[in-house]
Design a protein around this nucleic acid. Sequence first.
DNA 1: GGCTTATATGAGCAGTCGGTTATGTATCGG
DNA 2: CCGATACATAACCGACTGCTCATATAAGCC
Lengths: 111, 111
Amino acid sequence: MHPFEVLADPVRRRIVEVLASGERASGEVVAIVGPEFGISQPAVSRQLRVLRDGGFARVRVAGQRRIYRLDPEPLREVDAWLAHYRGFWERAMDDLAAEIERGDRERRRRG
Amino acid sequence: MHPFEVLADPVRRRIVEVLASGERASGEVVAIVGPEFGISQPAVSRQLRVLRDGGFARVRVAGQRRIYRLDPEPLREVDAWLAHYRGFWERAMDDLAAEIERGDRERRRRG
DNA sequence: GGCTTATATGAGCAGTCGGTTATGTATCGG
DNA sequence: CCGATACATAACCGACTGCTCATATAAGCC
């Protein structure tokens, strides 16, 4: 699954957010995210699986707990994809700035 | 539609790519993207609509043509979201570097 | 005006996604 | 061992996505 596809779901984005603050057991993620979205334990568990399969999360078994930890790799991929367009939008920003500048001059000229 | 949701589709990502290289008429986008994905004109047209609705593209009417131009705003949103995690993966990179460093010392020590 | 070109939209349909309930599989604790 | 706990998976289902073909809309050209 493509990273963007994984991040298309709000529950998964939220889980990424949660995991970014540190490792969490599956049950902890359920306790946080479940109520927020009004979804059940299996629903969260499946989203964790998608994150795993998508490379966003690693699991470690600790007794009866599964500890999830964020893997930054796919996020870096997204960043790399985005980097292609960074030049583009900075240029657009410059154009906008130039436009505003031009408008200011215009208004000043008119008084 | 959330930017990530818009970018979840490969056809739409490709169209963003195409538009990043400059304005294109709808028909030009169809001519490029259609064959690449083996999809019809209406299919491309509908993806252009999703990009429009998602704020990724602006249209200008020129006679019977519709000229599409990329709007960087949603891309910047994605970048902003990602920025929260940039620190996280840089830290992860440092950890990895430290790990490699440690491994190197280990190997050196063992000869 | 009537034909052609450019593009969008409607209707219909198969496939996928994400949810639910029910159940399976380990591990912990007495 | 056995019940409780933590988590994953199975089976099912409704909603949504993205495609197709057919058609609508509007401008360009003679």
